[in-house]
């Protein structure tokens, strides 16, 4: 059955959305680069990976059209995050336990 939330083309993003997303990604890249030279100590990894997660979110929502995709596609996309988190946390806990 056709997903009622999905339309063939989806409500198209405007060209302006793409340009803002691109500029935002470049700014976030610069912020991450700059943060590398700050003394963030134990938070450095969390900061750089958090910025990476925001960048991935921008690519996913705007460039990959998750903002306008069907619920089923968005569910699959969300599962991607869950799997990677599960693998990383599981391995980290295992290493910590040994």
């Amino acid at each position: 059955m056709t997903d009622p939330n999905h339309s063939p083309q989806g409500p198209a993003e405007s060209g302006r959305d793409y340009v803002f997303a691109w500029l935002g990604l470049l700014v976030l890249t610069l912020v991450s680069f700059g943060a590398h030279y700050l003394e963030l100590g134990a938070f450095a990894t969390a900061v750089s990976l958090s910025i990476a997660a925001v960048k991935a979110g921008v690519v996913g929502l705007v460039f990959m059209h998750l903002k306008t995709e069907s619920v089923s596609v968005r569910t699959v996309a969300a599962l991607n995050l869950a799997w990677v988190a599960l693998i990383s946390v599981g391995i980290a806990l295992d290493v910590a336990a040994h």
């Binding site: 999905h6 995709e69 069907s70 089923s72 596609v73 699959v76 996309a77 599962l79 991607n80 799997w83 990677v84 693998i87 990383s88 599981g90 391995i91 980290a92 295992d94 290493v95």
Partner: peptide, 24 residues
């Protein structure tokens, strides 16, 4: 689209395993 996203999920799992290895 759904099929493509499922394929992308398999790719994410492939790289996810490597990121997990990196973490360990």
């Amino acid at each position: 689209h759904l099929g493509m996203w499922l394929f992308l999920t398999s790719e994410v799992l492939l790289f996810g395993a490597l990121f997990g290895l990196y973490t360990g």
